[in-house]
Write a protein that binds this DNA or RNA. Structure first.
Lengths: 96, 96
DNA sequence: ACGATATTTAGTTGTTAGTCTAATTAGCGA
DNA sequence: TCGCTAATTAGACTAACAACTAAATATCGT
């Protein structure tokens, strides 16, 4: 896993919105693209970045490609943040 | 708060290492810079990005500037990831 | 195999990011 | 104020990014 790639992928608002939509379940590339004011090739680029970061998985079903959220990597981010926040707080003395 | 800025700041490995060092407590700009194989101006740039993203705070004490981790924003990232992971898992059916 | 639909790949362009060197600001002590 | 140290700002250069249009690939139905 590369937090590098992961955070880079998350640093784009369009990509975070895509993940947000996928919280509710799988969606096809086309259905996702329709939700944004952007060309399909541009959206396809974002899908590729998310896939490379392993934040989503994809499978083809006929002519469509279904994308799904990969919670595993999200949990890695979670773990990273927990550690940073927890240790920081222990020292910082911020009690709540 | 802007997750945009936050994730952009976190997408650089040097900056994540800086935060990592700050888990243990405040450090001066110079002390931090010494830990990296990079010029001080470059390090200063990274401090500025982290400050802009509100991931660190700074205060001057004499000739030195002390940087400290701001756990509040880290916790915002945490909350974001929790929501994504939790909702995603509810649907994804991943039981552990 | 053909035509239509779904999606990605290629190539281009303008913008942003990370790094460096050189110059500048800020504070301290004599 | 002068000289020293700490840190940032300015300017330049290269690499990487996000968006677009046009073209290519993959699958389906006839």
């Amino acid at each position: 896993m590369s937090l590098n790639e992961t955070f880079r992928a998350l640093s784009d608002p369009t990509r975070r919105q895509i993940l947000d939509l996928l919280r509710r379940g799988e969606m096809t590339a086309g259905a996702l693209a329709d939700r944004f004011d952007m060309t399909k090739p541009s959206m396809s680029h974002h899908f590729a970045v998310l896939k490379e970061a392993d934040l989503v998985t994809s499978r083809r079903e006929g002519q469509q490609i279904w994308y799904a959220l990969n919670t595993t990597v999200v949990e890695d981010v979670l773990a990273w943040a927990v550690q940073l926040a927890a240790d920081g707080r222990d020292r910082g003395g911020k009690s709540e």
